[in-house]
Design a protein around this nucleic acid. Structure first.
Lengths: 340, 340
DNA sequence: TTGAAAGCGCTAACAC
DNA sequence: GTGTTAGCGCTTTCAA
């Protein structure tokens, strides 16, 4: 361990491989990087030397010389991280990570609080990553809006403001999903359909309300049964209580996510009403809450892992200079269970 | 963009800072790295230059020169990633990420399938990271057992085999938690207490069964009501069904996680039995399943975010050469709700 | 306390 | 097709 000249544990360098294979370092580099202009024999010799030495390229050196980092940042605002346990988010991360694992890129997870947004931005702009994936529910957060102008960036979820116009993003079609869910309730014969939607500064909350309105309007139904939650089970429970306290007849409910639907279940049951007989319920997200609820919840399935995968795929294309659509919309699917 | 000498968008280098501050690069480097041997005046001048130029050190260059990467890998076996939506895992990742965000280390998320375990191991050993956090439920997976001998590594969860003896790990005290849960059922007057535990090749499954046995034995109760699940809601439902089909009296149930407890709820209700009147139920994990269940589930709370945080903290100490205990056990806490 | 100089391991012209 | 030669931006002895 203290010998200066020999350290059997030293990580082999490209130089060592070159020596063993009897070629120059440049040639080894070519083989490692898959250059076509190398004789098959030489390639084989180098490959063998690499295997014999158990050689692994040093990322730092490679990055320094090539000006490419092979790193992409996955930025999760801390506010989002707090709802990290939200299966939807976890799945996005999972999808992105899985997809990236198929490439040469490494995933650098960055959790950034609002205070650190500046530091994060500098880090991203400082040439430490080749691209970034930005995940957030929060549209209030414009911290990274302009990042896309100088670094390949893909946003998850619709950008909040027009400031993010030029940016790339992938999202699920919330409006269509919500409209479909509402249509389903109407098709089931419900007419007094309420909605518990999310905060209106979040695209998901806003768009799902829009979808509900669209369907209600198409059928000439009353749009007054609206309450707001914050996507938590508790807020759903309270919103449902307010809805019931209004005294108006309600025979259908569309909740903007399954967690709030689960909360609504509690209030409905407490009121002595039954699902779906008295009130048919449709949720959104298709997470565990819906699956384990009693009765199992009819809900809108979102391709959450697919969202992460698609974000990664779009970013990789972007970084390689391939043309990609600025907007990628993923379809939702209604999963009918026993709550409707 | 094509001008060779001037590029206003170029990322400033340490050299530029040195020039602006009128000092050598070495001095700038010292300031950046917090060396004490720099005059306050000089420090200030350099600091100002850094701010003016919006300088960010290049990680690759720094790493290449210093032989330190400032990167820690968070290795998530793919089999585990599939249950990534498991809130417990998501929280561990979150905790680790949050804790690391407080340090100079960057979190490199690695999802490794069994096929790629070799590639991952080489990556980790290839000098690309300063340390690794390895998260897994699966004890069958010994891929990374010996990694700790040549790289600072902290495992999440008890190591499966003795092969991992010398390694560092942090875990929650599953045996104590399970025993406590069972004791609680006994204190509630239950005597025919069943258990739905997890796979016996996973420490969590094994240890929770051990805890249950310990409590049952201490009170001289019969230990025959054992069924196995795979931690999924469905498996819990089926296991409960098998338990009920036995025809033996059951007045208490300890499920090795909340997801299985939620599944068991379904079977109990289907059998026309009520909770907790007929069967009192205790789960494990304290996740959303338990909170939203009807009735709300009494369960064993695990400090999941704390587990991730602690893992990160232990690793950082390890990397800095500070002495740390090989084993860190985190306490659990029984959360009593209406299911008991 | 500060500066000069020598690399860290690799890639990328350029020449052969 | 392959080798030579400069660096990439930073840290780190070693002198001063």
């Amino acid at each position: 361990m203290t010998s200066e000249k020999l350290d059997s544990h030293a990580v082999p360098t490209l130089e060592a491989v070159a020596a063993l294979a009897g070629v120059s370092r440049a040639t080894v580099s070519r083989v490692v990087n898959g250059s076509t202009k190398v004789t098959p024999e030489v390639t084989e010799a180098v490959t063998k030397a690499i295997a014999d030495l158990n050689y692994v390229p040093n990322r730092a050196a490679r990055s320094l010389a090539s000006k490419r980092t092979q790193v992409v940042a996955l930025v999760v605002p801390e506010s989002t991280a707090k709802v990290f346990a939200d299966p939807f988010f976890a799945s996005i991360v999972q999808g992105a990570a899985l997809q990236l694992a198929e490439t040469e890129y490494t995933l650098n997870m960055v959790i950034s609080s609002e205070f650190k947004a500046d530091k994060t931005r500098r880090y991203l702009m400082g040439g430490n990553v080749d691209g970034a994936l930005i995940v957030s529910h929060h549209s209030g957060d414009h911290s990274y809006a302009h990042l896309g102008q100088s670094l390949p960036v893909v946003f998850g979820g619709r950008p909040v403001s027009d400031a993010e116009q030029g940016s790339y993003f992938v999202d699920v079609d919330n409006v269509a999903g919500a409209a479909g869910a509402t249509e389903h309730l109407i098709a089931r014969g419900r007419r007094n359909i309420a909605i518990i939607t999310g905060p209106q500064d979040m695209p998901a909350g806003l768009d799902r309300l829009t979808g509900w309105r669209r369907a209600m309007e198409a059928h000439g139904l009353d749009q007054s049964l609206i309450e707001y939650g914050d996507f938590s089970p508790t807020s759903g429970r309270e919103a449902m209580k307010r809805l019931l306290d209004r005294g108006a007849p309600i025979d259908g409910l569309f909740a903007a996510n399954d967690q709030m639907a689960a909360g609504a279940y509690a209030s409905i049951h407490e009121a002595g009403l039954s699902i779906p007989e008295d009130i048919a319920v449709v949720g959104y997200d298709d997470d565990y809450f819906g699956l384990t609820a009693t009765p199992p919840l009819t809900t809108v399935h979102q391709p959450s892992i697919g969202l992460g995968e698609t974000m990664a795929r779009v970013l990789v294309k972007l970084m390689s200079g391939t043309a990609v659509d600025r907007v990628t919309m993923l379809p939702t699917e209604l999963v009918v269970r026993q709550s409707t």
